[in-house]
Amino acid sequence: MYNFEFAKPATITDAVKALAAEDAQALGGGQTLLPTMKQRLASPATLVSLNAIPEMIGVCVNDKGEVCIGGATTHATVAQEARAHYPGLAALASQIGDPAVRNRGTIGGSLANNDPSACYPAAALGSGALIKTNSRDIAADAYFQGMFATALAPGEIITEVRFPVPQKSNYQKFVQPASRFALVGVFVAKYADGVRVAVTGASTDGVFRWAEAEAALSADFAKGAIDALSPPKGDMIADLHGSADYRAHLVKVMTGRAVAAAG
């Protein structure tokens, strides 16, 4: 990879300062960024590690009952520490990548990258999470803006993600067999005021909510409630791992399975 200056600030304030430098780039767990840099497809002048900022690491529950996850918290930590509070989220975290990747990769890194096949965007959107940055709060519905595109401004850091805890939830991931990203992943969460269904892996627009399924499941949270629905419309990804029709079909199958598994 090309060389770069390396900075490892200990506070969010210092991190923001470091990221103000020209061509500076934040480094989370690096599980996507470093392979990209190895291929010389990214060439930041400065890499600012967010891995030594204590206030950005950890899982807790706030007084509203929301699960709050520091932006630099690894997938393995979420899988472990969120289990008692939000099992559906913890189970999703335990399916990202592989064990070694989960020990490095972070929730902030995943959400900032917003890979259209990543798992975390489905959880954040499916939970109506709040994405807190060094400068503002962004609702998940406003945060995801298409494949690899988010509401983050240059230099903005995800410091924390707050998840309202649903009554029931489940994530069903049908893996792309090579990369082990999601070929299609569906996160279903049942809240008192309705059901949210977030789909990753399937659309060229990145993670999205399947409105028809949400309406049907809000009326009747049962696997059979979506039987009559057509698979979601929109621009499905078509590649050598599956056609657009196949992905659309899988969205429906995985949604049904998620509802059944959520109980």
């Binding site: 490892k8 470093l34 590690s49 070694a100 990747v101 490095r104």
Partner: peptide
């Protein structure tokens, strides 16, 4: 366990 090909020594 981590993948040492995807971690910076400086980090």
């Amino acid at each position: 366990a981590i993948k040492s090909c995807t971690a910076l020594v400086a980090d």
